[in-house]
Design a protein around this nucleic acid. Structure first.
Lengths: 402, 402
DNA sequence: AGAAAGTTAGGAACCTTTACTAACCAACCC
DNA sequence: GGGTTGGTTAGTAAAGGTTCCTAACTTTCT
């Protein structure tokens, strides 16, 4: 049974109010009459609610519009006041933490960042608090103007309870991030997986803007995937949806591999496509080579990529195999989810132009239906924007549609 | 923007009415006071709506309950009237069509079936009409008592427009099933993919009863999968979600295979796990055998299964490979969807007890999280029950929760 | 004058609170 | 033991306050 809205008629007003605000927010400047038509409400009802929204500063009158050709009074245009409140987005990554402050339209007003390694565990949130206070001061904002804070964490997250169940790169296990953060900040805090956060960010303002069924695949140290279904983030029964890193795209290889020892905690796909996996495959490939090769002693996945692009046959073979596995994984996800779009993000996406055709060929040949595959529109701010949108969409405020 | 409910306060009554009905329907005999407490409504409001529901025969007073230990008036128990209306479910399969008539609790009152092959195209619906009229007469029901008809069709289906986009086994392509059916019957008709229909059937009354995140994998001629997410059927952006038959679980094999010629229209997985695929693999395996083997000349997948169970090493190898591919496919789906349960259905599920452990091992070893794998609870009536539940859940009637 | 935007006034529908009756249990007293 | 009394629970009735809508109005513009 869903949440029961006590208080009878107050509910319907709340609903209308939200819908009106949503309407103005979404479809630009509108007059009271236009809203009444769109929402099938009477003009007096709209006027009364608009009055309230104006008083609460959620909307503004933005001058007079143009009248219809036949004459008549000109409409008073209403616009969403994106400076009615602000939202803080925090993107906790394996290497750095980015903190941004945004208005309600998702415009980042300022961003700051610091290295993850310098602050462990409890000092972590204090470091964030410091930066946030600096940002607020710089913008001349009061605490009361902050609607909330969204945090994207690199690991499996229980969104309801705000607990990061497992974040290997931070050493977090069942860390009550929401609770700890809300003890430090005077506003509500929402927490989610970084990939999920990225997905709603892209769906809000990025490459998947306005689409209802979106898959975002982030390829970095691991491989994760955020799934938006029917316009809503789908997190799975136990917050583990989208663990595409475990997808097996080669049964023979999977059965042959010794699972327990080398890559504990990582899935099949991640071993081949993650940074460490690429390096390892390359090292394996290099064994049969003369010692005077052009690879640095401690090379990274990026080096392998570069070599492959330059035409090094061994590197190319390694990378091609990686691309193929990713391609099959993407094709498999498309066959299951049938999304409107697939977004590729993470470190690997920088080389997208180069390997995209190969992936698209695999999709063409093996997926049940096709789907456009693109790279994420946001760069390093994606996590922050996503965290902001987490607050704006998941919070039970006037801003949410009903 | 969602559907706008015009008419202000009438909406809230509708909502309350539905919630009260849903409450009684779901949680057995309940008194007015209990409903008021559960739904946070006042007693008079509940009384008024209950009055209406009684008049409309949706509910009945079922005698007096027991009073609390402390004394006081005994409550009047209210129960859902599952005979307030009836629903017709039609399961169109490749070989036969099953038609059932059900009450609102999903009890099948009667079922009839006929062979698919005998009736093609336009005569198809007339054959259904005949059977339906017979069933109604037998039950002594009037047309007005039928709430609607649900149809499960074996192919990709546009549910909104009621068009079967592609059903190879029937030779249907963009067949406007809903429109044609509604021209013949005086009640609303809903159409969906047979696997989707099966999924909501199992979620309604079967092995996944009450669960919100369910995956049903049907293995028969092809391999399909119905996905329920957040309690709702997920059909994909272009009605193609769950095409698990296209999942690639062996990249090497996939790349080696010549895709265009042998199995046009079937996916990678289906070639190995579908009936024809099994036969073909077995034939390949048998080539190296002496001619006087125990296989019939034209054996089926079922024969291969049987042989394997009896210990025939070649058959066992073929079947084990099939099971493995299914296992990896299931594991992959679990890693992506993270469902509460995975249901296996279709012809293959009869041998479930035998191969289930093998699948569970693969999930254990390769999926990111575990999920219970069970077989469907319904047998041959699953499609009919699912079609009934399609009407009950997707139709905009008093019966739907709000 | 005609047309369109927005406001005011009156009325209907809905829910809630408060107060009531009906029905029932339990204990108590003669 | 049987009737009476007090407390408890179920359900109903009346009053009050939302909300919305329709219809008529004013204002502003061509």
């Amino acid at each position: 049974m869903k949440f029961i809205h006590k208080g009878g008629t107050a509910f319907i007003k709340e609903k209308n109010k939200r819908n009106i605000l949503h309407c103005i927010k979404g479809d630009g400047p509108l007059s009271r009459t236009e809203i009444a038509e769109r929402l099938q409400l009477s003009k007096p009802t709209v006027s009364a609610i608009v009055e309230e929204l104006l008083n609460e500063k959620w909307i503004k009158e933005s001058g007079i519009g143009v009248s219809k050709s036949l004459g008549g009074r000109k409409p008073i245009q209403l616009v969403f006041n994106c400076r009615a409140a602000y939202v803080i987005g925090v993107d906790i990554g394996g290497t750095k933490v980015r903190i941004g402050i945004s208005d309600l339209d998702g415009n980042l007003l300022d961003v700051d960042e610091f290295s993850t390694q310098n602050h462990i565990h409890s000092s972590f949130l204090h470091a964030i608090k410091e930066r946030v206070e600096m940002l607020l001061e710089k913008q001349g904002m009061m605490n009361g103007e902050i609607l909330g804070m969204g945090i994207g964490a690199p690991g499996m997250t229980d969104v309801d309870r705000g607990i990061v169940i497992d974040a290997p790169s931070l050493g977090w296990s069942n860390y009550p991030l929401k609770k700890e953060a809300e003890a430090l900040f005077p506003w509500p805090v929402l927490v989610d997986n970084d990939v999920n956060v990225a997905a709603i960010g892209e769906q809000w303002l990025g490459a998947a803007k306005g689409l209802s069924n979106v898959v975002l695949i982030a390829i970095g140290t691991g491989v994760g995937c955020g799934i938006i279904i029917n316009g809503q983030l789908y997190r799975g029964a136990t917050w583990a949806a989208g663990e595409i890193g475990y997808m097996v795209t080669d049964a023979a290889k999977a059965k042959g591999a010794n699972l327990s020892t080398p890559h504990e905690g990582y899935g099949f796909l991640e071993r081949f496509t993650g940074g460490p996996g690429i390096v390892q495959s390359m090292q394996h490939e290099l064994k049969g080579r003369p010692a005077d090769h052009s690879f640095p002693r401690d090379f990274t996945a990026r080096d392998v990529f570069q070599k492959a692009r330059q035409g090094d046959p061994d590197a190319l073979q390694v990378i091609n195999e990686v691309i193929d596995h990713i391609g099959f994984a993407v094709a498999n996800v498309i066959s299951i989810i049938n999304p409107e779009i697939v977004l590729l993000g993470g470190g690997i996406s920088k080389s997208a132009d180069w390997f995209m055709p190969r992936i698209q060929n695999i999709i063409q040949d093996f997926a049940s239906v096709s789907a456009p595959v693109k790279t994420t529109a946001f760069g390093e701010d994606l996590g922050v924007v996503g965290a902001v949108s987490l607050v704006l969409r998941e919070t039970e405020s006037v801003l949410k549609e009903m």
